[in-house]
Nucleic acid binder design. Structure first.
Lengths: 343, 343
DNA sequence: TATATTTGTTTAAACGATTAAGCAAATATA
DNA sequence: TATATTTGCTTAATCGTTTAAACAAATATA
C-alpha cells in the first residue's frame, strides 16, 4: 500500500494545467474565474478527495474559525445543554467549537486558555472556575485581540460581555416560596462569596429574609464548593445545631442532593420537617425522592445568546468590548421537596 | 492604543541580531545552539510575551499535536471521567484534546469527524453513536493515515484498537446475582442489537438465563435507546403484562432510572416485588431511593489505557493498526434495588 | 603543521493556502 | 480604427515556523 499523500490545490492545478491560485479562487467562487474552470476544479477536487488544509488557510488568513469554550465541568445538564446550543449557533457560521473543562481548578483554566490561544482560536467563551479570582490569564485573551464572552460565572472587572440569570432575584423567589410554605428558619448552603453569582445568591437570600422580617442567623449561612459531599457534610452540621432549620436552600443541585441523602438517611420528613430547594434544575432533581424544587437557568436560551454575542464581534471587528450584561429571568420549578400545602 | 502585533520568532531574532532559525532551534533546545544563546532567547521570548504560532508549526511539521475525541454525550459520568483521564494521559506528551459530542446522531458524528480531520488532528478517539452502522466516514480517518482508537462502543469491522469492558460476562454477573436473590422472571430493557456492546449484553442475558434453566420469554426482552423516557415507557409496558417480571435489568442507568420512577409512582416495592439493575454506575444510581445496583465500567482506567494506546502509535509511526481488543473486567456494584436478603 | 571534526550559526526552501498586482486576450466604447 | 474596460488567468509574495544544507570558526587529531 503506497503512502497516501493528501491532495492539495497544487495537485488539482497540475491535473487541469492551471495555477494553484486559480484553483483557490475557483473553490472560493471568485467572480473572476469562469464557470467552466470552476466546474472542472470542483470535479477534480471531488475525484481526488480534496480536503482543504485548515492549518494553511488559517495561517494565511489569520482566522482559524475555531472558538474555544471553557466550562468547569461538561458533566452537568446545564453546561452540556448550553454548549450544545453554542455549537449549533456557531456551526451555522462555519465555526468549529473546542470544548475544554477546568474541573473547577484555576490552574487548569489557565492551562486551557493558553492551549486555546496557542491554537489561535478566534474567540473564547468561558464560565469561570470556582477557584478563579486572579484575572490575569483571562486578560491575556483580551490582549490577544479576540473576543472573550463570559456566561454563568463572570466577573465585572473583566469588562466584557456576560450572559447569565438574575441570581439575586432568584434567591428572592426561593425565599418567598419557602416563607409562603410557612418556613421560618431558612438555611443557605451557598457557594463562595468571591464568585459573583454565589455572592448575589447570598445577598438575595439575606435581603429576602430581611424583607420578610426574618432574623439572619449566621449559623445558617454556609459557604462551600457545592459538591454532593459538601451538601452531605453541611447538612449534618445543620442537623447538629440545637436550633435546627426548617428549610434548606442550597445554591446548587448537587449540594441539594447530598443534603437530601442525609435527610433521607435520618428519616427526616421532607418537606414537613425540613423543606429543601436546590439550584440549576439538573434532571436528577426531578427524579429523586422526593423531587427537589430548583431554579431553571434556561441553558438552551443562554447558549443561543452566547453564540449570537460572539458572532456580533466576529462580523464587526471594530466594536470594542465592554461590560455588557444580558440577564435572563430564572424560573422557580416547585416540586415535592418544598411543597407542603398540596392544592 | 496601538494594535498589538503578536511576537514572532523573527522579532526575537531581531532583538538579538541572530537568525530566526537560531531562535527556533534555541526554543527547541537544539544541541547545536550554545547555552548562552538559548538563555538569551528564552529571556527575550519571556519579555516580549512570545506565544508560538501553533498553526505555523503544525503546517510545517505536519503534526498538529491535536487529538480529537468524539463521544455520544459528555453529559454522563462515564464519558466525562473517561475524557478526563484521556486528557491527562495525552497532556503529558504535549497533546491537546478536542472534545466533541455526537448526541447519538450518525450525521453529527460524521460532521465531527470531518471537522477534526479538517483541523488536521494527529488522531481520533471515538465511542460511536448508537445510530452509527455505516462505517464509511470512520474509514476516512484510517485513510487519512492517523490512528483511530475506539472505546466503549466500537466495531470489529473497523479493524482498529478497541478498549472496553466484557459486556457478555457483565450480563452473566447480573443474572447470576438476580437468580441468587430468588428472581425467576428477569426482563431486559436493552439497547439495540446492531450496537455491539448492547448485542453482547443481550447475548449474555440470554445465555445466562439458559445456564440457570430459566425460559427466555420474548416479551421480556426489549430493545430501546436507553433514555430515561424509554425506561419509563418500557417499564409501563412490562407492568401491563398479564405475567409481570420479578426483576428488570436495564442496559443503562438512565433507563433504569426511568423504570425506577414508574415503580415508585405505582408503589411497587423494590426489590421485593420487582428487583432492578442498571448499567454504567452513574453517580445518581447510588443516590436515588432505593439506590440502584449497577455495573462499574472503570472509566478512569479505560481513559488511561485509551491515551496510552494512542501514544503507542504516535511514537512508533510504523506500526500498522489492526483489531486489538483490550477488555476490562467490569464490577457489579450491588445496592438496595436488588438486594433482598440483607445480611 | 596540516587535516579532520565539532560547534554554532546562517541561508534558503518548504508546509498549503490566500491575495495583491500584473498581464494578455476578449469585448465594449468612442 | 483606436482606446478603454472587462474577463480570466498567472506570478509572486506572504502567513510563522521548521529543517536540510552550507559554512566559518574553533577545537581535536595525526
Amino acid at each position: 500500500m503506497a503512502i497516501k499523500k493528501k491532495t492539495t490545490i497544487k495537485d488539482i492545478a497540475n491535473v487541469l494545467n492551471i495555477s494553484a491560485a486559480a484553483v483557490s479562487k475557483a473553490l472560493h467562487n471568485d467572480a473572476r474565474i469562469s464557470e467552466k474552470t470552476k466546474k472542472a476544479v470542483r470535479q477534480v477536487a471531488e475525484n481526488l478527495n480534496y480536503q482543504p488544509n485548515h492549518l494553511a488557510s488559517a495561517l494565511r488568513s489569520g482566522k482559524s474559525k475555531l472558538v474555544g469554550v471553557i466550562v468547569p465541568k461538561t458533566n452537568s445538564n446545564f453546561f452540556s445543554s448550553a454548549i450544545h446550543n453554542i455549537e449549533e449557533g456557531l456551526d451555522k457560521e462555519g465555526y468549529n467549537v473546542i470544548i475544554t473543562q477546568s474541573n473547577e481548578s484555576f490552574k487548569k483554566e489557565c492551562k486551557n486558555i493558553d492551549t486555546l490561544l496557542y491554537l489561535q482560536v478566534d474567540g473564547i467563551i468561558v464560565s469561570m472556575a470556582n477557584e478563579t479570582v486572579d484575572l490575569e490569564t483571562l486578560e491575556k485573551v483580551k490582549a490577544a485581540g479576540i473576543p472573550l464572552i463570559t456566561f454563568d460565572r463572570g466577573e465585572n472587572d473583566l469588562n466584557v460581555d456576560y450572559i447569565g440569570i438574575d441570581d439575586y432575584n432568584s434567591s428572592h423567589l426561593i425565599v418567598n416560596h419557602l416563607v409562603e410554605q410557612g418556613c421560618k428558619r431558612i438555611a443557605h448552603i451557598g457557594g463562595y462569596k468571591r464568585t459573583r453569582i454565589y455572592n448575589n445568591r447570598i445577598r438575595g437570600y439575606v435581603d429576602a429574609l430581611k424583607k420578610h422580617n426574618l432574623p439572619l442567623d449566621e449559623e445558617l449561612l454556609i459557604e462551600t464548593n457545592l459538591t454532593i459531599e459538601d451538601g452531605r457534610e453541611k447538612m449534618l452540621e445543620l442537623l447538629a445545631l440545637k436550633n435546627r432549620p426548617d428549610a434548606v436552600y442550597a445554591a446548587g443541585d448537587f449540594a441539594a442532593l447530598g443534603a437530601l441523602q442525609v435527610l433521607n438517611e435520618q428519616n427526616i420528613k421532607i418537606p414537613e420537617e425540613i423543606a429543601l430547594v436546590g439550584f440549576g434544575d439538573e434532571p436528577f432533581s426531578a427524579m429523586v425522592t422526593p423531587s427537589i424544587t430548583s431554579v431553571n437557568q434556561h441553558p438552551y436560551k443562554m447558549g443561543r445568546i452566547v453564540a449570537d454575542t460572539f458572532l456580533k464581534y466576529s462580523k464587526e471587528t471594530t466594536i470594542k468590548q465592554s461590560l455588557n450584561k444580558i440577564i435572563l429571568e430564572a424560573k422557580l420549578v416547585i416540586r415535592d421537596s418544598s411543597l407542603k400545602k398540596k392544592s
